[in-house]
Design a protein around this nucleic acid. Structure first.
Lengths: 204, 204
DNA sequence: GTCTATATTGCGATAGAC
DNA sequence: GTCTATCGCAATATAGAC
């Protein structure tokens, strides 16, 4: 087998296993067995279990580099927000493992958080903050918004939809066919809020 | 030492350790050493490591039973939503470990998820859905809201604020003194959205 | 580059003394 | 109810053959 074939195979297999049970929940024995190679290959190619995990993490967060795509379109702040919502949904649809590494590193960071995870998340937040600021300065968005809080509110809405899947699968359909409805719904809530457009006196 | 003293001590110490490194990241050797007792005490009192983890989980999610408090006040749907936001903030402030068990069980469920975690989360979501439905039927909220999606959007906003702490501590002040500002801000976004109240034509 | 075999350490669980 | 001592097994890592 080609050298890179084996490296890729080990990364791909351990991505699934690490995402399911965490760094400490999987042994290199199990990984090498699943890959059909000797356990010593992990030390040889990655310098050990943590080296393998670091490679997995690097691959998982490499996609965050492309967040700038949502800015490329020549559009206003609102369209960029919609582009972000679509972008994050596509990321989770394409890679069902990402969210687990994401939450695991945020709540129980490994030594690789500062070098791999923090910069990736930081870049996304930075770009989103600029979009909100742009919306405020062009009078599209309310002047009293705190940009960072607003970004977290938006990112939280979308992220939590995926995070809560296991607890809400009996309540709503989480299949991708409903994603378009979801985008519209979240855009509506985030831009207009939930209040009825009737005058807000006591209506009952 | 009294029997319950030791049980409580073991639960309290392992709550911190399990939350920091997960079920598989902590050994009962380390827990018993930190508690200053013999390793055999864990098997004796809890039937093993998993039994201890189960007790920890049970304690962590027992507080969810009191979610009904937010309904007790004789108030409209909007006030109940504000009560929920405050309630969830207080929960995380009072117990910094909760979020880790919460996300860990949602993304990497153990055998205890169905019996301990799912019912606790399910109860909260159910009550929140009723509040949204109440708001819709009294004409306070928009008629086209999907109640479950709306609940997840709201819960996500607040939860993600805590989840993202590690990645955003350089950007915003996460100290409890700012919680009141946060409640106002999230209520504003969730009810009115982010759009400026100026007519939404091209304002630049 | 990949294997087998092994060294060493740590794991969870429990038997048996007190 | 708590301890010490130990069993049996699985962990990571590596030396050395091919």
């Amino acid at each position: 087998m080609d050298k890179n074939d084996l490296r890729n195979k080990l990364v791909s297999i351990s991505t699934r296993l690490f995402s399911e049970r965490g760094l400490n929940g999987v042994s290199i024995r199990e990984i090498s067995k699943a890959a059909g190679v000797s356990i010593s290959m992990i030390s040889y190619h990655f310098g050990g279990k943590e080296g393998l995990y670091s490679s997995v993490l690097q691959e998982q967060f490499s996609g965050f580099e492309h967040i700038e795509e949502i800015n490329k379109v020549d559009s206003d702040a609102l369209s960029k927000i919609e582009a972000y919502i679509r972008w994050i949904i596509v990321r989770h649809r394409d890679n069902p493992y990402l969210l687990r590494f994401y939450t695991s590193e945020l709540t129980n960071p490994t030594q690789f958080f500062p070098l791999i995870v923090q910069p990736a998340i930081g870049k996304v937040i930075q770009i989103l903050v600029h979009i909100i600021e742009e919306g405020i300065s062009t009078n599209k968005f309310r002047k009293d918004l705190n940009p960072v809080d607003t970004v977290l509110a938006m990112a939280g809405m979308v992220t939590y939809y995926f995070l809560s899947t296991l607890a809400t699968q009996e309540l709503i359909n989480h299949s991708p066919e409903r994603d378009e409805v979801l985008v519209r719904h979240y855009m509506d809530i985030f831009t207009k809020g939930i209040l009825s457009s009737f005058p807000s006196g006591n209506a009952e």
